[in-house]
Every structure is written in structure tokens, then in C-alpha cells.
Amino acid sequence: MTTTERNVVLHVDDVSKNFGGLHALSDIDLEVEEGQTHAIIGPNGAGKSTLLNVIIGRLAPTSGAVVFDGQVLTGKKPHQINQLGVARVFQTPEIFPDLTVLQNVMVPAFARRDGAFRVNVLRSVEREAALRDEAEAILEDVGLADRRLSHAGALSRGDKRRMELAMCLIQHPRLLLLDEPTAGMSRHDTNTTIDLLQKIKARGMTKVIIEHDMHVVFSLADKISVLSGGRIIAEGLPDEVRGNIKVQEAYLGGAHRLEAVH
């Protein structure tokens, strides 16, 4: 494969982030190709969430820049970054606990259709049949159709995660950032989520995923970057990373852990 064929959609360019004297991220370079699922793995405190926060605009990098599809994300506000087509699932689900499940999924649909700000008081939400149907279809996909009129705050943590995923999917983002999307889920729900994410992959959505569960990582990732101590210590195809001794020392704690997921 030559470099011209590769279509890099997300480019993290030499990003560093310091918190006081702590170097949370050092000289991170990352290229994510269109349509691929790029997993970032690493031990706790490696800087994975910090990296995601820098990409999404929640944290400003100390140096370096993040470029998405030719647009510099660094310095943009979160809502501007989202409007460019970047959505995120948080480690702790960020939802609207006071709204119903259906409303939770409809709100992002309005952001996609009406933009960052529009005062629309003429037509009631009830009459937005097209958006509602779309939201119900996506709730069906994530397996929450029967909960759509429940109070979102009353959902279990696993259900909240799936709903948050639905909230992102309805926006048809070009880049989806997932921060441990299966943490706290049962084995069954995890597998459902993997199936769902594989389905999305077939539609060509680019994803960056942080995950501890190696089963999930090796089921989904096209490419893996290993983060440790704020640096990328290894990068490559899943099989290459699996065989990398350095990775096993830093994160996987020896070969036996890897054998378990085969």
C-alpha cells in the first residue's frame, strides 16, 4: 500500500499535554484512516482518556494540534467539533437523566438537522415523525426499544451506555470516539455491543476506541496503538501488537493474558 492510497481522516500531530509537572501525554503522533477502527490500549493512567479529551476539545494540548479532515480541531469549542462530525461516548455515560430514552436520542438528531442553534417553537416535537422514527429504529438496533418511554436516569449503567451510543449513532458522525464502551456490561451485553459496532463498521464509520477488554479490542480493531506513560510505545495491526513483547510487559502482564482471549 502506498501512502497516497491511505486516506488519513484524523491526524494527531505531535501532541503533548502537561498538568503542572506531570507529562500526561508526550509527543503523540497518531493517524487514523477513514473507515477504520483504531484502538488505543494501555494500562491505567497511560493517558488514554486525556488523549480523547484533547481530540474532542475538552482539554487544550500544551503543544501540538489535532486535525480532522483538513480542519484543525485544536482551539475549537466542543459543539463546533461535534458539528464537524465527531461524536463521543464517555467513560461515565453522559446522558440527559431527566428526559425519556426516546427524547435522549432525539435531541442529538435535532443538533444534526438544525445545527448548533435554532429557535424552533412553531412545530411541536410530536410532529417530528421522521426524526422519531429514526430514533426508534436506532433504539431497536441497540436493544432499548422497549425502554424508550422510560426515564433515562432510571436505566442501568449498561443500558445508559447503549443509549449514549445510540445518541451518537443518530448523528451519523464521521468519527466516533468510544471511551470504554463496554465497561460495566455483562458478557451478553458486551457481545451485543460488539455486533453493533461491527455493523457500524460495515457502514464505513471511522472509530477511535479505548478499551480494556482485549476480547472487544481484537474483535473490532483494524489497528492498535499502545499507550504507556503518555507515550505511544507500539503501534500496528492487531497480530503485530499481540506479538510485541514490549506491549506484553507494559500492559498485558505476560503472554498468558493474551492466550486467554484467543
Binding site: 474532542i56 469549542k77 459543539h79 461535534n82 428526559l99 435535532f110 445545527g115 435554532r118 412553531l122 417530528e128
Partner: peptide
């Protein structure tokens, strides 16, 4: 009208989780 409208729903979203509203693309 305001209560039943998309605008009203966005306002409820702000009350419920303003941060999520920003990351969902709303100013």
C-alpha cells in the same frame, strides 16, 4: 408552544446535562 417545541426540548437538555448538550453539537 415553547414547552412542546424542539426549542423547549433543547432547554430541558441544558437543564439536564449542559455538558452533553455541548458535545452533542449545541451552542
Amino acid at each position: 408552544k415553547v414547552f412542546a417545541s424542539p426549542f423547549g426540548m433543547m432547554l430541558r437538555g441544558i437543564k439536564s446535562n449542559q455538558m452533553r448538550m455541548s458535545y452533542t453539537g449545541f451552542n
